[in-house]
Amino acid sequence: KWTITVQGEEAIKWAIKVAEARNLDYTVHIDGDQAHITIE
């Protein structure tokens, strides 16, 4: 299990796209213009 933090709307969209493309189980916690994405 690991967490990445991305900043900015484009980076958030990209990170989610990558997680979905790899069929990963993930949760997103949005904090202002940052998102913390935890991959199970």
Rank of each mutant, 00 (worst) to 15 (best):
E40L: 15
N23W: 05
I4F: 12
T5D: 03
K17E: 13
H36N: 05
A19Y: 07
Q7W: 14
R22E: 14
I12E: 01
I37Y: 02
I37N: 00
A15R: 00
G8V: 04
H36I: 15
T3V: 13
E40A: 13
K1N: 08
T3H: 08
I37S: 01
A21I: 12
V28L: 09
V18Y: 15
T38L: 06
N23I: 04
Q7N: 09
E40V: 14
R22T: 15
A15I: 14
I30M: 12
G8I: 05
L24K: 04
V28I: 14
T3S: 07
I12R: 05
Q7D: 04
I39P: 00
A21D: 15
V28M: 09
K17H: 12
W2S: 03
E20R: 04
T38P: 00
I37L: 07
E9F: 12
I39D: 00
D33P: 06
Q34G: 09
N23M: 08
I4Q: 02
T38F: 07
K1A: 10
I37G: 00
R22M: 15
E40W: 15
V6M: 05
R22Y: 15
A19W: 04
R22F: 15
Q7S: 12
I4K: 01
E20Y: 03
I16A: 01
A19I: 15
Y26K: 00
V28F: 05
G8Y: 03
I12D: 00
T3E: 05
W2D: 01
A21V: 07
I39H: 02
W2N: 03
N23A: 11
W14H: 09
T5N: 04
E20F: 04
A15G: 01
Q34F: 15
E9G: 07
A19Q: 02
N23P: 10
A35W: 12
H29E: 13
W2M: 05
N23F: 07
Q7K: 14
R22C: 13
Q34A: 11
I16V: 08
W14S: 06
T3F: 08
H29L: 12
D31E: 12
H29P: 00
T38A: 05
Q34T: 14
G32Y: 03
D31L: 08
W14T: 06
I16N: 01
G32K: 05
I37T: 00
A35E: 02
T38Q: 05
Q34N: 09
Q34I: 15
T27H: 09
H36C: 05
A21L: 13
V6D: 01
A15Q: 03
D25H: 14
I39W: 11
I30R: 11
L24M: 06
I37H: 00
T5E: 04
W2H: 05
R22W: 15
H29Q: 13
L24P: 04
K1L: 08
I16K: 03
I39E: 00
H29S: 10
T5R: 06
A15E: 02
K13F: 07
I39F: 14
I16Y: 02
E10H: 09
I30K: 07
D33F: 08
V28D: 00
E10D: 10
K13N: 09
V28Y: 04
E20G: 04
T38C: 04
E10V: 09
I37Q: 00
A11R: 11
E10L: 11
I39S: 02
Y26I: 10
W2R: 04
V28A: 03
